[in-house]
């Protein structure tokens, strides 16, 4: 059961990573990077690392995304890769 769950999470994480790098819109890219961090934090729970999971959930998917969004708000237009 656990390996299946882990596989699904890894697939979601990799798809989020591809979306973050390849999608045209920067906003969607930033949100996908947050999704990658969120799935990574669930993977840490499965790998028996609750401390790391809490840090990743609070910092990787929360604060990091907010900082990207604050910078994106300053940069209008010009959002194509």
């Amino acid at each position: 059961m656990l390996p299946v769950l882990l596989t699904i999470l890894v697939i979601i994480m990799l798809l989020g990573g591809l979306l973050a790098v390849e999608h045209k819109s920067l906003l969607i890219g930033v949100i996908s990077a947050g999704l990658v961090s969120l799935t990574a934090s669930i993977i840490y729970v499965i790998l028996a690392a609750p401390d790391v999971a809490m840090t990743e959930a609070a910092i990787g998917s929360g604060l990091s995304t907010v900082m990207f969004l604050y910078v994106l708000r300053r940069i209008k237009g010009d959002s194509n890769a």
């Binding site: 401390d51 809490m54 840090t55 609070a58 910092i59 929360g62 604060l63």
Partner: peptide
């Protein structure tokens, strides 16, 4: 949990 998590 701890300092880093609580601070975040």
């Amino acid at each position: 949990g701890g300092g880093f998590q609580g601070g975040a």
